[in-house]
């Protein structure tokens, strides 16, 4: 696992059934592109998060294939439908096989 990786997500605590809500996500990650050279002059190997997904109660909201051109500390903002109360699940997939997960519950009201 890359060091210091910490996911953050911003989801409203409540919504009306059928509402569209804005979700923001940010995860601390270097996103080493593979294009840079280290102090010794050798290329630093690529090490990025290559995929991000958001699901709600098992249904997909967005699935993003990520390339090295995504900035350090990847940020995404998108909109989700909330048909009922439940749980958002956010998953980031690292090149090194690590998976970082975060969940957020949302109530109807």
């Amino acid at each position: 696992m890359a060091s210091g990786v910490k996911p953050r997500v911003k989801v409203p605590k409540k919504a009306a059934a059928g509402d569209a809500i804005t979700i923001k996500t940010l995860i601390s990650h270097k996103m080493e592109s593979g294009q840079r050279k280290g102090d010794d002059g050798n290329p630093i190997p690529r090490s990025i998060i290559n995929r991000f997904t958001c699901d709600f109660n098992g249904e997909n909201v967005v699935d993003v294939k990520m390339e090295p051109a995504i900035s350090t500390n990847p940020y995404f903002e998108f909109e989700a439908l909330v048909p009922e109360a439940g749980e958002f699940k956010f998953t980031w997939y690292d090149d090194d096989g690590s998976i970082y997960e975060e969940t957020k519950s949302i109530a109807i009201g």
């Binding site: 569209a20 997909n60 699935d63 995404f76 989700a80």
Partner: peptide, 15 residues
């Protein structure tokens, strides 16, 4: 970006 059944819009922002 692939939008699923619960995407409220076909839009997204990133850096």
């Amino acid at each position: 970006f692939s939008f699923g059944k619960l995407a409220a819009s076909r839009s997204a922002s990133t850096r």
